[in-house]
Simulated scan of single mutants.
Amino acid sequence: MNDNGNTTSQRWYREPWPWLLMLGPFAVIVAGIVTAYLAIRSNDGLVEDDYYKQGLTVNQRSARDRRALDLAIKAELVLGGNGDRIRVMLHARDQERLPAALVLHVAHPTRPGLDQKLALRAEGGGVYSGSLVPLHGRWHVALEDDKQEWRLVGEWVIERGPLLHLQAVETTGGLQVGASDEKGR
């Protein structure tokens, strides 16, 4: 029997089903390329290359924190200008032995490319100043003398205010280096 009905045959590329079936694998290929691009282009800031060396320096850091407590060192950090100037007022038990310069480390919690290390010059009377790239958001701050004998650390959320207080305090659980911003947080 010869059936010559009204069946029309179209080419495969004119049918919607092959294209719909190819859409899934094509989307996976595009997603894989985008993921590979992001993995190569971005920096994983949470992984430390020298984690072993950092672990060995924990006792050294604790000794420097203890030294700041022994000297009763307190610091007030103030952002000025358009956020590109910083002034530090340093107070210690022995005001005559204040260092000639301070080093301020400002580190972003997740993006090490934004970290800054500043040398602050003495202006006299326990006041130090320097320039920095304007800050926004949350930052880890470490202030130390130029000889690295003591240090104060804290966390600064810039949006809470341009003022940060740093000091080392003794607690029942041990030494704690504290920080509070303008609103006492």
Rank of each mutant, 00 (worst) to 15 (best):
P162R: 09
R151Q: 06
V153T: 15
D146T: 10
D181W: 08
Q176Y: 12
R151H: 15
T171K: 09
K147F: 13
E170K: 07
V177A: 11
Q167D: 06
T171M: 05
R151V: 12
V153S: 12
P162W: 10
V177E: 07
T172R: 11
A179E: 07
G161Y: 02
A142Y: 01
A168G: 03
E155G: 04
V177N: 09
G154E: 03
E170M: 07
E144W: 10
G154C: 01
L163G: 00
Q167E: 13
A168R: 03
V157W: 13
G174F: 01
A168I: 00
G173K: 00
L175K: 00
T171W: 05
E170A: 00
W156R: 07
L164P: 02
L143H: 10
A142H: 11
Q176M: 15
L164H: 06
G178K: 14
Q148T: 12
H165D: 04
D145T: 14
L164E: 01
L152A: 06
E170D: 03
T172V: 03
K147V: 08
D181E: 03
V177Q: 07
K147L: 13
K147G: 10
W156M: 03
L152N: 05
Q167C: 13
E155T: 14
I158K: 12
L143E: 11
E149F: 11
G173Y: 02
E144S: 15
G178W: 13
A179F: 13
A142N: 06
V169W: 04
E182L: 13
K147P: 03
L164S: 01
V169E: 14
G161C: 10
L166A: 01
G154V: 09
G174A: 09
T171E: 04
G174Y: 09
A142V: 15
V177D: 06
H165S: 09
T172Q: 08
E144A: 11
D181Q: 08
Q148V: 15
L163E: 11
S180L: 10
W150F: 05
E149D: 14
V169D: 12
E170P: 00
T171C: 07
Q176E: 10
Q176V: 09
W150N: 02
I158T: 13
G154P: 14
S180G: 10
W150E: 05
V153N: 15
T172D: 10
K147I: 14
E182P: 00
R160S: 08
S180H: 08
G161R: 13
D145V: 02
Q176I: 04
E155W: 00
R151S: 06
V157T: 10
E182F: 11
E149G: 08
K147E: 15
G161V: 00
Q167W: 15
E155K: 04
P162S: 08
G161Q: 12
Q148M: 14
